[in-house]
Simulated assay, not measured.
Amino acid sequence: MTQHPEAPAPAPLLSAADVRRIAAELDLRPTKQWGQNFVIDPNTIRRIVQAAGVGPEEHVLEIGPGLGSLTLGLLDAASAVTAVEIDPVTAARLPRTVADYRPEAADALAVLHADAMTLSAHELDAVRPAAAGTGPTALVANLPYNVAVPVLLHALAVLPGLRHGLVMVQDEVADRLAAPPGSRVYGVPSAKAAWYADVRKAGVIGTQVFWPAPRIHSGLVAFTRREPPVSDVDRQDVFAAVDAAFSQRRKTLRAALASWAGTPALAEEALRAAGVDPRARGEQLDIAAFARIARHRPAAGEARP
C-alpha cells in the first residue's frame, strides 16, 4: 500500500493568548475611536483569506491590520501585503510581529502609518514592498465599524487597480452594501458601491472571535471590480443624484430631486428623459438609472419657477 506524505501543518497564526500578550507588551487598550476589535481565532483568519480568493502573485492592501492577525494569513496567500494603519503604536509593532512569525516574508510587507480616509495611490507607491511589482490588486480588511463605508468607497475611487476584495464590516452594513434595488435596506452605500463593483455578502462572523467582543455580528462583503455602468457621466454627478434621491426616501423622485434639479418640474423633465417614472422612489433604481438621471440634469441657470 502506497503511503502518501502528510500535508504540512499550516503556519501558525496569532492565537487569543498571542494577541493579548502583544497588546500587554504595548500597554494597548483597544479604542472605539479607531474601531479596534482584534480577531483572536486562527480558523476565522483562514476562512477570511480563503473567501477573499487571493492569488499567489497578488499584492494585497490591508486596511487596519491592528496587531497582525489577518496580515500573517494574507502573507501566506499573496506575494506582498501593504498594511495601512492609523494607530502609530500598532503600525510600529507590525513588522516585528511578521519578523517573529513569518521571517521569510518580512520583505513582502510594507506598513504605511496613515488615515485610510485620505489614502492616495502616491502614498502606497512610496512604501511598496520589494516583492510587489505593481500597486495593490486586492483589498482584504477588517474595517473599523464607524468608518467602513467611506473607507471602502474611497479606496475604490482612488485605487482603480483594485480588482477584487473582501472586507469585514458590521453585519447590517454588509447587508446594505450588498442590497439590490427594491430591498428594504437598499440605499446610498448600495448604489455607490455598485458604481465600482459587483458586490455580494459572503458570510457572517460571530462576536466571540474578536477581542474585545463586539455586541453585534460582523458580515463579510466580497466585491469584483467592473466598469461603471456609463462612461459619459462624471461619478460625482451621479453620486449627487443618489444622495438627493435618498435624502428624502419617502418622497417620489420628482419631489426628492427638486432641489438637485432646480425645481420639481425640471426634476420631472430629467427623470422622463432618463426613462424613469417621476413617481418612483430612489430605492427602486439601480446605479445605471441614477447615471441616466445625472446625464439629464439641467445645466446651471436653467432653473425656472
Rank of each mutant, 00 (worst) to 15 (best):
L285R: 06
V199S: 01
G301L: 10
P298W: 03
I86C: 10
V54I: 15
E62G: 08
Q236R: 13
A17T: 07
Q248P: 13
P212K: 12
A24E: 15
E57S: 15
H217G: 11
A121D: 14
D232W: 07
V230C: 13
N37E: 06
P264I: 10
A193C: 04
P30F: 11
E302Y: 03
G64A: 14
A105W: 07
V242I: 14
D286T: 04
I216G: 12
A155T: 08
D107Q: 15
L119N: 12
G187L: 12
D100G: 00
T71F: 03
R176F: 09
A194Y: 06
I293H: 02
A92G: 14
R249M: 14
R235A: 11
E57H: 15
A202H: 11
V209F: 01
G275V: 10
P65M: 10
V54M: 10
G35L: 03
L177E: 05
F38H: 07
Q208C: 08
A92T: 12
P5L: 15
P214W: 09
V49M: 03
A80P: 13
A299F: 14
Y145L: 06
P214R: 02
G203F: 00
R20G: 01
H164V: 05
P129I: 03
A202V: 06
G165M: 11
F38A: 05
E57Q: 12
Q170C: 08
T137W: 03
E85Q: 13
A11G: 08
R272D: 07
L257K: 00
V98K: 00
R292E: 06
A83H: 10
W34V: 02
H164F: 07
Y101G: 04
R249N: 12
R281P: 01
L253H: 01
Y186H: 09
L156M: 09
R93W: 01
P10F: 08
P228A: 08
L94I: 08
G262Q: 07
A80F: 15
K201Y: 06
D198M: 10
P180K: 05
N142L: 09
R281W: 13
P56E: 14
R279M: 13
T71L: 12
P189F: 10
P278D: 02
D243A: 14
A24F: 06
G64T: 06
F38Q: 01
L70C: 09
A9H: 12
A132V: 08
L94V: 03
V238Q: 08
V158H: 00
L220I: 02
V167S: 04
